[in-house]
């Protein structure tokens, strides 16, 4: 498959930039538009673009971890954050807050949950895209 040189060069620069932006979106998500879902999609888009510009094998190498593993870890973090309140004697999924931190904002279990969502979205999207592209 021939790919345009512009796309392949651009994707190389976008590969670090887009995940960075996605993390910005993730952190911003608590009070402003953004959040784990959007952030995850942007991050996944970076790797998907890389896969289109080069090939899936390269993109997998750039990702370093199995997308499936990301799903597992993400779900685990999300459930863990939701279950923390149970150990505190409150109903499942009650938000627990720690305190305000300069860059990250207000820390608490909802933030952990968002990180979980982020990882799951990256994992699911890339699993689908990679397996579709590899089936060609």
């Amino acid at each position: 498959m021939r790919t345009s040189i512009i796309l392949s060069t651009a994707s190389r620069y976008l590969l670090p930039l887009m995940p960075l932006f996605s993390i910005f979106l993730l952190l911003r998500g608590h009070n402003e538009p953004g959040g784990g879902f959007v952030g995850g999609l942007v991050a996944a888009a970076a790797f998907a673009l890389y896969a289109f510009a080069h090939n899936v094998k390269e993109a997998r190498k750039a990702l370093r971890v199995e997308p499936r593993r990301l799903i597992g870890v993400g779900l685990f973090i999300a459930v863990g954050s939701a279950a923390l309140s149970v150990f505190n004697g409150k109903p499942f999924m009650t938000g627990l807050w720690y305190k305000e931190v300069p860059v990250l904002g207000k820390l608490g279990t909802p933030f952990l949950f968002d990180i979980g969502v982020y990882l799951v979205v990256v994992g699911v999207t890339l699993t689908i895209i990679f397996s579709l592209a590899e089936g060609e």
Partner: peptide
């Protein structure tokens, strides 16, 4: 609150997660 109400959802979910992590 009654933990037994959440467990029927949580147990398969957590089992599923661990199974995903122990894929091979």
């Amino acid at each position: 609150m009654n933990i037994l109400l959440i467990l029927p959802i949580l147990i398969p979910f957590i089992t599923g997660i661990i199974l995903i992590l122990a894929w091979n």
